[in-house]
Design a protein around this nucleic acid. Structure first.
Lengths: 212, 212
DNA sequence: CCCTAAATCAAACGTTCGTTTAACTCTATA
DNA sequence: TATAGAGTTAAACGAACGTTTGATTTAGGG
């Protein structure tokens, strides 16, 4: 029946998925046509509907894969024992590494975030709800208990996500502004910079001279 | 000739612009059809091409208007005398207020940011280049001189923009997660919160207990 | 060796897309 | 009042869209 899948072609479904992620990120989901996608994936036009049911089904699979990976990192780095600072720093390092590896999927996810397609929005809301829950339990509540700072998780989760994503979202544009700028800072330094800002502010904790 | 424009209709061009901003933000640019737009604006289909030349011309006008407003705020609040802290705080307050007033345009701008449409990307790059220049001169260079922190402007400008935009980008989604959450924090408190994090970190400057 | 089912293919489906055309209405000026 | 031109309209253009169909190929299990 459907035992081993190592058929003749090195998996057309994977080639479609890979081409779709690249095209949706660079040209946009709606701007990308099925024929253009099939040509880039080097498969027949019908294969996309054959494997994914529809164009939106393909998008849903891409988004689900990305969100589940993001949520897994939040669960791994934020949940459990450890101080708030170290947990947050580990989460930022892990999430930035994940965003870098899946930067095209990240771009697709952020670009499609605000749109209210009823087929897609429920998938996104389900993942976002779980993320908000983790952020609330592991960051917001401890933060309020320790510092008296009350930041709603529906505010903090978007802030952290957007902050970490900014580099990858703006990279195509910043390359036009200054060629090579998107690789000017290593991913490690970028993570450290973000963690430093989130935890200690832009001027750093040991340099809080007030110039205002 | 073209002296006073108070013709019979209360400005079809404005109605198109308004409907386009709302539709592009909620359904996406490519997903929005000209007929759907014309119907929402209550104008004839041909009027869009009559006033804006093409669908992309309409998008360019929306983006240019938004970016020029954003740049004007950066110029007004960041350029000139004053300490780094107070300038940054004023910029955040002004930009957040602008984002709130033009949240639909903000969503359109961010959603279309990573896409590489050659007609659009040069407009975006021109505005982004000016913003990077201001951020470099007014934030990055003073910051390096005072704190020794070297953050490239091509990194910091996206970070600040994404951070301030996060609330509005995620608002449609967070409303599905928790109804009313997008208005849980007032715009003033949101600005203060952002300024506090950027300047002093999440736990606040007078509460830097280390829990890691 | 046949048979079943997954995979692939070319072709066409009906629809919707952005844009254009040409005629018409209205208003302000000369 | 005649006229020029901006505003508005209905209708149609060809192209591209996502999807479906039916035939054909391929490979493994009986």
């Amino acid at each position: 029946m459907k035992k081993n899948r190592n058929k003749q072609q090195p998996d057309s479904k994977d080639r479609i998925l890979r081409a779709a992620v690249a095209l949706f990120a660079r040209r946009g989901f709606a701007e990308t046509g099925m024929r253009e996608l099939a040509a880039n994936a080097e498969v027949n036009l019908s294969m996309v509907n054959y494997f994914f049911g529809s164009k939106k089904g393909l998008l849903k699979e891409i988004l689900d894969s990305f969100f589940s990976g993001y949520l897994a990192i939040a669960g791994a780095e934020l949940v459990g024992a450890g101080g708030l600072h170290s947990k947050l720093e580990r989460f930022i390092v892990g999430a930035v590494r994940y965003f870098a590896a899946e930067r095209d999927s990240l771009i697709i996810a952020i670009s499609e975030l605000p749109h209210d397609d009823p087929e897609i929005v429920e998938h996104k809301a389900a993942w976002a709800g779980q993320m908000v829950e983790i952020v609330n339990r592991e960051i917001c509540l401890p933060l309020a208990a320790q510092s008296g700072q009350h930041i709603p998780p529906t505010c903090l989760a978007p802030m952290l996500t957007s902050l970490m994503a900014s580099r990858f979202l703006f990279a195509p544009l910043m390359e036009k502004v200054e060629a090579g700028s998107s690789e000017a800072v290593s991913m490690e330094d970028y993570s450290k910079m973000l963690a430093g800002i989130v935890l200690q502010g832009m001027t750093g904790v040991d340099n809080k001279m007030f110039n205002g």
